[in-house]
Design a protein around this nucleic acid. Structure first.
Lengths: 138, 138
DNA sequence: CTAAAACCTCTAGCGGCTTTAGCTGCAAGA
DNA sequence: TCTTGCAGCTAAAGCCGCTAGAGGTTTTAG
């Protein structure tokens, strides 16, 4: 049996976060030692790794909960799991697209200013005046 | 004089958000009507647009506060403003890099699954098993 | 046996808002 | 003039996904 510290060490998820996941229902209530400390099996550690990996990919707690529920029902069709992954992919792509616009504008702003005083600073002027933008970031 | 609603309409910043910005010290305490409603001048609206634009670019409230303070002192050197913009650019670039890794992995995961049941679902297996990853997203 | 490390619960805090509850202000139509 | 209904007000709580701290208990190493 693993202590919560062992779990933390082997998965890289911090101890308070593990307790948080239990509270959120991603991990079931762990068995307890006589002294009320959590004890985990290897399969619970695997589930924690699953959760960690999913979080690293940006999935919400809610989405992970759905995936865990799904994985408890191996006979169900996996279209649902596909949908969750695909949605996340779409979200990530949107974020990339948006950040690229920001990158372009910030680049322009911060390479443009050759003045010495705030009075003429391009950074400040660009922020004050959206018309100086080339792209239509929202 | 503009009401808070007018401000919201012309800048696209929601009414409660405007009040929040005032609380955070980005907007100064607005004048009030006899009936205690906020009344704004055009220059306050311009400042709100500035804030909005900066937020869209991902600047934190704190960074925006610094920029506003700077813009009140036109004779100061603008190196500080440049630094803020450049830092934000670096942050944005980091985020893009990370998201691209996620995109690659999600793409692989969600195009890989041709099974019908959760039992064999690649999405679920990939999440359970980090070894299936090609990149070393953190 | 003791000291230290690890564990426990509970609560509060982060950023950047959004929402809710319960009020008051104000303009336009009957 | 009255009323209706939108707009505004304040204060406080809620959201996400943790993280940190206080103050106590259990486990482990020596």
């Amino acid at each position: 049996m693993l202590t919560i510290g062992d779990m933390a060490k082997t998965t890289g998820v911090k101890v308070p976060t593990i307790r948080y996941y239990e509270q959120m229902g991603l991990l079931s209530h762990a068995e307890r030692s006589e002294g009320n400390q959590r004890r985990y099996s290897r399969s619970e550690r695997d589930r924690l790794s699953f959760i960690k990996h999913a979080r690293e990919l940006g999935l919400t707690i809610e989405a992970i909960r759905e995936l865990i529920d799904l994985s408890q029902h191996p006979e169900k069709p996996c279209a649902e799991a596909d949908r969750i992954a695909a949605e996340q992919l779409a979200t990530v792509r949107q974020k990339i697209a948006k950040l690229k616009k920001l990158e372009a504008e910030l680049e322009r702003i911060s390479t443009h200013c050759h003045s010495n005083h705030v009075r003429d600073c391009y950074v400040i002027r660009a922020l004050a005046n959206h018309d100086l933008c080339e792209t239509d970031h929202d």
